[in-house]
Design a protein around this nucleic acid. Sequence first.
DNA 1: TCTTGGAAACTGGCACGTCAGTTATCGGAT
DNA 2: ATCCGATAACTGACGTGCCAGTTTCCAAGA
Lengths: 226, 226
Amino acid sequence: MAILEGTLPPGTPLSRRRLAEELGMSSVPVADAIARLEGEGLVESKARAGTRVKIATADEIRGNYVLREALETHSARLFAECADARQRERLMRTAERLDRAYNALGRSKEYSQARHAKVERIHIEFHMQIARATKVPLFADAIERSRVLLFNWIFTVARDFEKFPERWHRDLAEALAKGSAEEAAAAMRCHVRFRQADVIERFQHLARRQEQDSRMVRGPRRRVEN
Amino acid sequence: MAILEGTLPPGTPLSRRRLAEELGMSSVPVADAIARLEGEGLVESKARAGTRVKIATADEIRGNYVLREALETHSARLFAECADARQRERLMRTAERLDRAYNALGRSKEYSQARHAKVERIHIEFHMQIARATKVPLFADAIERSRVLLFNWIFTVARDFEKFPERWHRDLAEALAKGSAEEAAAAMRCHVRFRQADVIERFQHLARRQEQDSRMVRGPRRRVEN
DNA sequence: TCTTGGAAACTGGCACGTCAGTTATCGGAT
DNA sequence: ATCCGATAACTGACGTGCCAGTTTCCAAGA
């Protein structure tokens, strides 16, 4: 069910029976899959009232970055300590490819979520290369889980282009591939925090704009949620 | 289904139908619960061949500690930065209680898993107090997941008493409650690594002894696992 | 004694149907 | 036009039953 990775916007309802019909199977395996997605936090369901793709709050996004700061920083430390030459070189190449992709995205005329998702997938691959080099599957899995979560949330706030330093990941990869463990960890910490600040700022901007919109359209339109 | 937290030794088979009968329900909700446990890594199942409580390998235990070093170190950093006075004081009290419990365990005449589990529960509570103080649920959840995993594995290797420094957690709590963020992180890193070394040494000792045993009993008794 | 093979018992996967609770819709009252 | 409430459609939870693999175990052969 990787269909859900970015193609379904948050809030989309997922009906067990409807999906079962589309996929040509009974509703039981669909329910299992949905339950798994719920366990990973990608989806939330109220009993007997439907399941929808999770809508993240600002706090949850912030929390995701706190978690990631812990995981990725340590991952970088381990990479600097124990990656072999081939992995280091490969990381540098991926970093260059990623920076090129981001720069191309920033230069393109109009925002396309499909294109953005493609670049974000490279971004995940970049960090997973680091994580996998630690040779600790449990650890790499934890990083992947939290990355997938954010992958699904980020398109809520990324309505316009991503504009980042031109050689952002290249510099990070260099710190990981050539620096000490502490330098690598510090570089990664800086990387995660930069991104966190950027995303949260976008989120708050979005929230302000939405509040403005709803106030302009109507008076008592605010619904009680949950 | 918290029944599984320590009372069922690794390798115990979990039959959907048998559990359903015991609990007086149909097999469907039981299957759901087991699927959830599998998602958390507490249980592993081969299709149409049964589900059993997961038997951890040395690598997985080591991996668990790598993950924990990342999470707990950051958790300690955040605690030192943003816990309030009440939380700091409470942590000191829990640390004292935990050290007392460990010392009592070390003095008792014979090993009792039930008693040990009780102490380990306090140990989890200690670390969860730190994690909860960060006010990042996603982060605290990640720590809890990895702690619960190890909670289930540790009794495999802990066949004798736990002997630790007498004021071990008290000193750690002091570093967290009164030190800087960096001091707190360093103290926690030291704490996790000490425990990791201890557990892995026990695990290898156990593996050596089991290999010896199986060699003494019979020749071609080694089963092909997978 | 050790191997082997085959059948019975058991396993999880899944289909189908029912049930109780939630939500959305639409017609009637204001 | 707005509000409201009854009802119908829909939702996930779960019971029952079958199926195709896997494991286990015991008897027959070496």
